[in-house]
Write a protein that binds this DNA or RNA. Structure first.
Length: 512
RNA sequence: GGUCCGUUCGUCUAGGGGUUAGGACGCAUCCCUUUCACGGAUGAAACACGGGUUCGAUUCCCGUACGGACUACCA
């Protein structure tokens, strides 16, 4: 039997989508495409208390931005919907009842106070792990300890209850993880997890098994934080009678803090000043906005490439991959086992690579957008020239303007360190001569002319150009670094150039 | 604490019983150059530790240490 590969990304709409979640989605996507399968998205919203408005829409937009588009989802539908667990609510009880009838699950009536008391009691008795399990359930209020008619009575009276799985006392539970190999856990260390909550909603554990089965999921690729509960899931597949079509599991290594250790969190992102969400996320309650990769200037293709390499590699020395190339190269065998520290430097490097690969025209569009916000008009031709000059030194599209401001705005002050070192009488002489030549020029200034006139100005003063070049740059741009000066001159134009030289000559003083 | 997972340069990683342990980011130096950047070249930089197995272990096994995840009527 060769089933169609079907994988799913199952986020919970409780806030902005964490970058680790995005990576999980990407790996699912790549795996599906590589195997000519389907990538589905299912919204896991069984916890009504944690519902956050806008979160689901955010997940959709973020994935769209990156091009990790599900084949089936709440938004486009599909043949095994609905794709929101809250809308599948009615489906779960049937399976929970099936488990109860088979003796693999039971009703429990304990209140949260009683559960707390139980845990306290066990802790006081120095029990290593206080949990609801094969031992302790005999002392709690459930359908295993209560007389049958009392159970019926309680149920009939509408008393709140949960349904718990009945974990066997002694059993070795094994699963073959695609990344980690065989993982074995003894059932005595598992607890009787709640399957159905008292509000009638299933917990993640039941819902994810039922849905994955009903949706024909063949491979579950998810974060490592799920590994400890995977044996429970195996047991559920077995008890539900679905073991022969149980998906294969692949538990991804976690994304770690850049310094020290631990799971990457929003806190780390704030601390180091880099994003952790794909796009800006505004918390509807606190109104706080968390910066996104998109708004920071990261390109989607750079993000994809960067994210893919956080825990995976192609096995050769290639670094640059388009999404299509990733699909081609991707295998779960090449996913690493150990946690990955988040290195924003690498993300920046990828962004620079993709930024430089863009045409001057594309970049000019970014630049003109930024300029519009500043109220500056610029011809597309000029924008393109500036973009071409600046792109080698930009990390983000916004740098085109930030670092290239001087091409459109005359300096109001000059870098003092450079002035101190380079500004001298020679510079004054050359610039004075040069200004005369510029003013006398007919027609537009082009880089070749700009240079030959400058060379003439230097030799007429019996100086070498190199001696004064830095001073010239300082005079015109205000700073000591930047792209080819002659190109800059041409963009600035002769009138403006002449004005700037005047201003510099007036403002800068020669040190005695 | 318990259960599970992990550990190769600062970081991401390749490799795998015998290698000068390879690449990338970052860092340093040099070259290019009107500066900075780009680009090119070079360099510093790693197999956590202890026992086995073996002629030989970074590689296989077992411990130890360290790190992480999980331990809710959250996912």
């Amino acid at each position: 039997m060769n089933r169609e590969v079907r994988v799913r990304f199952a986020p919970s709409p409780t806030g902005g989508l964490h970058i680790g979640g995005v990576r999980t989605a990407l790996y699912n996507y790549l795996f599906a495409k590589k195997n000519n399968g389907k990538f589905l998205l299912r919204v896991e919203d069984t916890d009504q208390t944690r519902f956050v408005p806008g979160a689901e829409e955010y997940i959709k937009d973020a994935l769209d931005w990156l091009g990790i588009t599900p084949d089936e989802s709440p938004w486009v539908g599909g043949s095994v919907g609905p794709y929101r667990q809250s809308e599948r609510k009615e489906m779960y009880m049937e399976y929970a009842m099936d488990l109860v009838e088979k003796g693999h699950a039971y009703y429990a009536f304990d209140t949260s106070e009683e559960l707390d008391a139980m845990r306290e009691r066990l802790t006081a008795a120095r029990v290593v792990s206080p949990q609801y399990n094969s031992i302790t359930r005999t002392q709690m209020k459930n359908s295993l300890t209560l007389p049958e008619d009392e159970v019926k009575e309680r149920l009939a009276s509408g008393e709140p209850y949960v349904i718990r799985i009945k974990i066997p006392r002694k059993e070795e539970v094994r699963l073959n993880d695609m990344i980690r190999g065989w993982v074995m856990v003894h059932s005595s260390t598992l607890d009787d997890k709640v399957l159905m909550k008292s509000d009638g909603m299933p917990t993640y554990h039941l819902a994810n098994i039922v849905d994955d089965h009903l949706m024909g999921i063949t491979h579950v690729i998810r974060g490592e934080e799920w590994l400890p509960s995977a044996p429970l899931h195996v047991l559920l597949y077995r008890y539900l009678g679905w073991e022969d079509t149980m998906p294969q599991f692949a538990h991804l290594p976690l994304l770690l803090k850049p310094d020290g250790n631990g799971k990457l969190s929003k806190r780390d992102a704030d601390k180091h000043g880099f994003p952790i969400f794909p796009m800006d996320w505004k918390d509807p309650k606190s109104e706080e906005v968390a910066i996104g990769f998109k708004e920071q200037g990261y390109l989607p293709e750079a993000m994809i490439n960067f994210l893919a390499f956080l825990g995976w590699n192609p096995g050769d020395h290639r670094e640059m991959f388009t999404k299509e190339e990733l699909v081609e190269a991707f295998t779960v065998e090449r996913i690493g086992k150990s946690g990955t520290k988040f290195d924003i430097n690498k993300a920046k490097w990828y962004n620079e690579q993709y930024l430089r690969a863009k045409s001057d025209g594309e970049l000019a569009a970014y630049l003109m957008d930024d300029l519009k916000k500043e109220g500056i008009e610029l011809s597309p031709e000029k924008a393109e020239r500036i973009a071409g000059l600046m792109k080698e030194r930009a990390t983000f599209p916004a740098d085109l303007w930030k670092e290239g401001k001087f091409m459109l705005i005359a300096p109001a002050e000059f870098d003092e360190k450079v002035a101190e070192k380079r500004w001298n009488n020679d510079a004054v002489s050359v610039l004075s001569t040069y200004k005369g030549k510029i003013n006398a020029l007919e027609g537009d200034l082009d880089p070749v002319q700009a240079k030959s006139l400058l060379e003439e100005s230097a030799s007429e003063n019996e100086l070498k150009l190199g001696k004064v070049m830095q001073a010239v740059r300082l005079a015109v741009t205000g700073v000591g670094a930047g792209p080819d000066l002659m190109e800059v001159f041409a963009i600035i134009g002769k009138e403006e150039l002449s004005k700037r030289i005047d201003f510099a000559l007036d403002t800068l003083k020669v040190n005695a």
